[in-house]
Nucleic acid binder design. Structure first.
Lengths: 252, 252
DNA sequence: GTAGATTATAGTAATTTATACAATAACAAA
DNA sequence: TTTGTTATTGTATAAATTACTATAATCTAC
């Protein structure tokens, strides 16, 4: 229940607080994943301003109240900041809310800031370049990003860890793997998405049968891929199907 | 990325905004489920103040900044409001974040309010009673709660619909069903949780085997339930196990 | 006490699904 | 044309699921 009168008793405080005192800043952050050079990677920016100057961070920023009648939609703010900070031009293949991170001490500055985090997937993109207030934006292998090698700002290591878990879990019971592929792809390319993100090997024949028996997962384009680079029998080309959830999961 | 200087250009506004202008109110809401009288139910309160006076709503309220050093943890705020509004004394069996609802027009009042929604499960509780600012709190069958019979405040029908989906999905691959049971329960009681929430019938023998072959799902207490009320062979008593996720899902 | 009803639990055969691996197909390059 | 490579199909086995049967342990009615 939400109310604008805060006239009730405040046992741990003697000063009466106005409604204004309960307001907080709301930011968004995106963990945007891709597969580049055969490696599962996440988009990070290098911070150019304090706090956490020169630390790496997920792209994001404050929801602005001067856009639209009553401020931005959170998802809209996340996409705007992503484009401002990374110069990313294309639309994302996938975006969903990951969760909200709101611990009182997650931001060291005076003002309390909570963040609505998003989980996104882009197809292999041109290497983005730093925009407005990011001195650098680049894809980083996820293993490196959560390792000790890299200093991540705020609670972004926690957010990123959660996002990686989400990605690995969603591969199993949803069709999001197709979002890591180009618009036209072969079943082998789709299989390699699973192999890279799960760090495992899958049997090509069994994977083929499983994917083809999942209605709405992929659509046969009736054409073959060019095999002059890869060698071997040319593979059929497919595009992403219409279903978002799999009726029976892909197993590791 | 989060920053406290908002010195960048604002294309859709001429007035420069201070950081204070970007702050918003943050509320929490809980969809708290239980099984009562053999029916899947959710805890609702009847609002006693505008807006949405006399509408039904999920328990919740603003995160307070005058509790703790830098204000409350969101989850802490959700539990505090739940207890204030419904008089609920016991601890919950389960609570997780559902998602954040932040559309600019979700609250009709002047101040923009976003809400972090939670999904919770309580064992069959004594009927709660209205507390501080709730004129009435009661469990309502979920089908009735999302039907046209009931007027729900704000976007609480959307939140509740999402929460019900989450409950139905989580039964399949997690052990949360045990949270709908009393501390000691029989396998039949556990099966009835699935049957009630999924509105389906499950084969008792097959369910038994499935549950017993899922490591960490339930723990045998070595005692039998009293069968004088139910008739038939007395069932073994179990308590919730230590695992939270099932390796192989319970199917409908 | 016994018969019948009721519920729990165990067992079993048929079916379906998954897995491991072999066979064939379609190309490129030598 | 032969060889190498990858894609795709097939197949035998293993495992899991499903539908159903059998047995066990209690209660109630007589």
């Amino acid at each position: 229940m939400e109310r604008s009168n805060s006239s009730d008793n405040h046992p741990q405080s003697t000063e009466p607080l106005t409604i204004e005192n309960h307001k907080v800043l709301v930011a968004t952050d995106i963990a945007l994943f891709t597969i580049k050079d055969g490696i599962f990677q996440v988009l990070l920016i290098k911070r150019g301003v304090p706090p956490f100057l020169d630390f790496w961070a997920l792209p994001g920023g404050l929801i602005r109240m001067d856009i639209g009648e009553r401020g931005e939609e959170p998802e809209e703010a996340a996409l705007r900041e992503l484009k401002e900070e990374t110069g990313l031009a294309k639309d994302l293949g996938y975006l969903e809310q990951l969760g909200t991170y709101g611990s009182p001490n997650r931001d060291p500055r005076e003002q309390r800031v909570i963040s609505i985090a998003y989980f996104g997937i882009g197809p292999t993109l041109e290497d983005p370049e730093g925009g407005s207030d990011a001195s650098h934006a680049t894809f980083v292998p996820v293993e490196k990003a959560i390792s000790d090698q890299l200093d991540l700002a705020f609670d972004h290591r926690l957010i990123l860890t959660d996002a990686i878990k989400r990605a690995r879990a969603k591969l199993e019971y949803s069709t999001i793997a197709t979002q890591f592929c180009t618009q036209e792809f072969t079943i082998s390319e789709l299989r390699r998405v699973y192999e890279i993100i799960w760090d495992t090997e899958l049997d090509p024949g069994n994977f083929q049968k499983k994917v083809l028996s999942s209605p709405g997962f992929i659509m046969d384009l009736g054409r073959n891929a060019d095999s002059s680079q890869t060698g071997g029998r040319p593979a059929k080309l497919y595009s992403a199907g219409t279903e978002t959830l799999l009726n029976s999961p892909i197993r590791r």
